[in-house]
Design a protein around this nucleic acid. Structure first.
Lengths: 187, 187
DNA sequence: ACCTGAACACCGTTCAAGT
DNA sequence: ACCTGAACACCGTTCAAGT
């Protein structure tokens, strides 16, 4: 509140004319930022879905505070609602059944949101690189007797950057939603 | 810090002898609590996996602050590491390939963690019920012209409680990991 | 109607001083 | 080595007083 009031060159108490509290402030800022998210128009439905959610994730990754808010309280602004609508449309195009699509949209939005919060601790690139290499050495030097699977998979556990992992996670969830659809059909 | 120091009947500054900062304090508390998580021994691998992650999620759901910490900074205590090891073992038993298992464990742990953070805003049951019914009416009264898919799926969007949705989400991610494994085999 | 400054009730963290 | 109280530098929120 105080920081934003400073940027706006006004007293911090003045903001309470326009917002109810900090959460409300964050929600209004987020929806304004979501106006910049592009709705992809080329490629198949899966590519368009991943592009849309990547764009959503980019906004959240640039504003860690907003990602935290988006996770703890479901946003409800018009631009957020438009993204939900589009995700549902793309899942329908992909052949997902109604319930799988409805429940799947939450899970799909969770991926970029949670990943944005995960990377919100990145204070300085300097410290972040150190933290990451600490984690790598911890995984690579784990006791193979006590944790055989971690030791065996240590290379894969530390492999892959943020974006490639995010795209992989979205593919996993999309595949899972389609698998649920198939399982429901067989019932 | 001050609250916990009060419970321990000591000065808040004294805690800094044992912890580096608030994040370190949360990490130590979380790993102590994770000692209580049961490792299921009956049922097939998928049931055991879901039970294990549900147990993990229960701990986080009872301690919202810790869930937020677990999301922004990867825990690294011995009990957390043991859970990761067990998830990897169960995924291997289920036939997941190495990379899908290694990357999948992050995504699987994300589900209960993020859902715990989501429900961390539940201050009083009274207000929470109100917030939930507000959301329901908002979804059910959405403009069908502007948001046709939300309107069409409104019943499914609001259906299902926390636990059943969590189990569904875990099934989706497990199915997705197995689908990725199958896709990798075909290459 | 909108803005302001002061005040209130909190935080986490540091540090000199005690034992 | 461990603890303490005070102090510092922050928060979000409220409110009476201004214009």
């Amino acid at each position: 509140m105080r920081r934003i009031a400073g940027v706006l060159d006004t007293g911090h108490a003045s903001l309470y004319v326009y917002v109810r509290d900090t959460e409300d402030l964050h929600a209004q800022i987020l929806d304004a930022l979501l106006a910049t998210v592009k709705f992809p128009s080329s490629g198949n439905w899966r590519t368009r879905l991943k592009d849309l959610l990547t764009g959503y994730g980019e906004v959240l990754r640039n504003h860690a505070e907003l990602a935290r808010m988006a996770l703890s309280t479901q946003p409800n602004g018009p631009h957020f609602t438009a993204i939900v609508e589009q995700v549902l449309a793309l899942l329908k195009e992909g052949g997902a059944d109604d319930r799988s699509a409805a429940w799947g949209v939450d899970l799909l939005l969770l991926v970029p949101t949670a990943l944005a919060v995960e990377h919100s601790a990145e204070v300085s690139p300097r410290l972040e690189a150190e933290r990451l290499s600490d984690m790598e050495t911890r995984i690579q030097t784990v006791d193979p007797q006590q944790y055989p699977n971690i030791a065996r998979l240590s290379a894969d556990l530390v492999a892959g950057g943020g974006l490639i992992r995010s795209l992989w996670a979205l593919d996993v969830v999309v595949d899972g939603i389609l698998a649920r659809t198939a399982a429901n059909r067989m019932q």
